[in-house]
Design a protein around this nucleic acid. Structure first.
Lengths: 336, 336
DNA sequence: GTGAAAGCGCTAACAG
DNA sequence: CTGTTAGCGCTTTCAC
């Protein structure tokens, strides 16, 4: 494919306006230092010809692209199902727009795509990349680091051999988890269980660590593995009730998991919070406010995380690369 | 932001390998017509220097980008909630990957974004655009046509003044709707109602037209406006039952709507399909197979639509621009 | 303030 | 086969 009709060049505009290419260039890029009558003539010529600068040519000399790639190493099916990601993307989108940068979303599904994405990033199409490294064993982050373009990760990357100089934005998962569990303990609960998230994601591991920080070497039977989905929450809650019928509190790795757990608790006739107190994580309003009872949960500002990722990337390599860990806050509702 | 360390150029590789730039270029681009020993030397130099071609420079001369933009004129929130879109995107993604093209997803939310997207498309970053023009009054399609790059629309664009030469891929919404309603009539149903989709989308309008094709000038009270969501389906079904208690069949504009309608029917004690037969549209498996009873519905191959859009775009302006309307098929399950 | 000239890094004829 | 030579369209010193 070869773009449609030949589009007018700077040269053409210059000829039409009776000035030099340099002058047109100046006008097109803000117009400082060009006297008004001339500038007006140039603008008219641009208008008449429908001139649009060729970005490839421009980038070739400026080495800037005013575009940022967002790389998601997940099949669309998952990406598009995850409200968490949508929120983060919105934050990114807003921040980039404010800096007049174009957001370029690169989806990868499978090995072949990795190579293409790596090539795209190294190829000089974008000024930087925002990468979601959702899984511990994802090879993409490594590939991207080799592309040697400024990169900010969403969530602490957990890939083995992670070098020290990666920049990421994350919530204080461990601290938030601690606060949740402490709250349960403060409520007088002494048999606090935990339903984990998918343990190939650092967020799940960190929350588990936070739980352990408070409970110490708790009986491992009080830890049930989930996967951040309601179904996983149900399954784990059942297992938990079967092996520890006297559980009196549950800290779930996220709100969806908690929602699943709540369903099972009701099904088994446990009252929440009287018999079993439940705390989630995320504070996704559509979930947390709709459950019965409304969910006490650890809030993280997801959209802000996205915004911050973009900001960190755009500020360039000037400031030393410092990751940011955002604080979380406990939101009390009815479930604990 | 200014890309990181200065990256090696063709020149550098040529110097290191002791050949000319042209030779390196040949090797890098497939290597035909370069004798093996030389080619090997070049490859080693490329390797050692970590050379990656500068795409801006390449595009400047080839006028190709091997990248295609997918433009979605919807806020992320909606895009990411819609499984329909995810499926289409998957089809596109696969087809583009097969042709070694990079998919660049451009999201727009609000006026400001439109300008940026238009600029991006005109700026020569991509070889073409795939555009989802979901709403009748969307200004984006018009803007994009002005960008004068090859474009294929997803779904018949309904914008006023639509020129004749737009290329789009769509399902035979009208024909599918006709088949559904005819099926209901063939079942002996004589009071067939319709719950529409969001009528600012052509797909909803076309399905309504198909319904009318069969029912003729039916009493307008048998038509209730929905919005493609389960909630809308519930609401519309209630209205329908209130004003036409003797309704014996419902054609819903999509499966989600049908699912909502089914809930209300059960709630009101109507048996499906004995008292009221129900047909949906889409055949989204997770929905259609999970309802009770399983949903009879009009299937469209959504992923194939995506694939086709990409194929149409990639084949270039060679073949005359012909839109494609894919056939639908009625899938019989339990509800009608 | 404005223009002339020199490239940015690469590919594509065209010679040899 | 390989090297030489022109640019692609734009920005950017540097003179005027």
């Amino acid at each position: 494919m070869t773009g449609a009709a030949p589009r007018p060049t700077l040269e053409a505009v210059a000829a039409r306006a009776g000035v030099s290419r340099a002058t047109v260039s100046r006008v097109v890029n803000g117009g400082d230092g060009v006297r008004e009558p001339l500038a007006a003539r140039v603008r008219r010529a641009v208008e008449e010809l429908g001139y649009v600068p060729n970005q490839a040519a421009r980038s070739l000399v400026t080495r800037r692209h005013d575009a940022v790639a967002v790389v998601v190493a997940e099949p669309e099916s998952r990406v598009f199902a995850d409200p968490f990601f949508a929120l983060q993307l919105r934050g990114i989108s807003k921040e980039l727009a404010a800096h007049d940068n174009q957001l370029v979303l690169l989806l990868t599904e499978g090995r072949d795509d990795h190579a293409r994405v790596a090539r795209y990033l190294s190829g000089g199409h974008v000024d930087g990349a925002l990468v979601f490294s959702l899984h511990l064993d994802d090879p993409l982050p490594g590939l991207i680091q080799q592309a040697r373009i400024p990169t900010v990760f969403g969530g602490r990357p957990g890939w083995r051999g992670g070098r020290g100089d990666v920049v990421y934005v994350d919530s204080d998962n461990r601290g938030g988890a601690r606060e949740a569990v402490r709250h349960l303990v403060g409520l007088g609960r002494s048999r606090v269980a935990h339903i984990t998230g998918a343990l190939d994601q650092t967020s799940a591991v960190d929350r588990l660590d936070g739980y352990r920080d408070v409970t110490g070497d708790a009986d491992p039977r009080w830890i049930a593995e989930g996967d951040f989905t309601p179904g996983g929450g149900e399954w784990a809650m059942r297992a938990l009730l079967d092996r520890c019928p006297d559980v009196d509190a549950v800290f779930a790795a996220n709100d969806l998991t908690a929602a699943g757990a709540l369903r099972v608790l009701r099904e088994r006739g446990r009252r929440v919070p009287q018999d079993v107190a439940v705390i989630g994580f995320d504070d996704m309003l559509p979930v947390a406010e709709q459950t019965d009872p409304p969910l006490t949960t650890v809030r993280q500002d997801i959209e802000e995380m996205g915004r911050l990722m973009a900001r960190l990337l755009l500020r360039g390599p000037a400031a030393e690369p410092a990751s940011v860990v955002l604080p979380t806050t406990l939101v009390r509702r009815g479930s604990a």
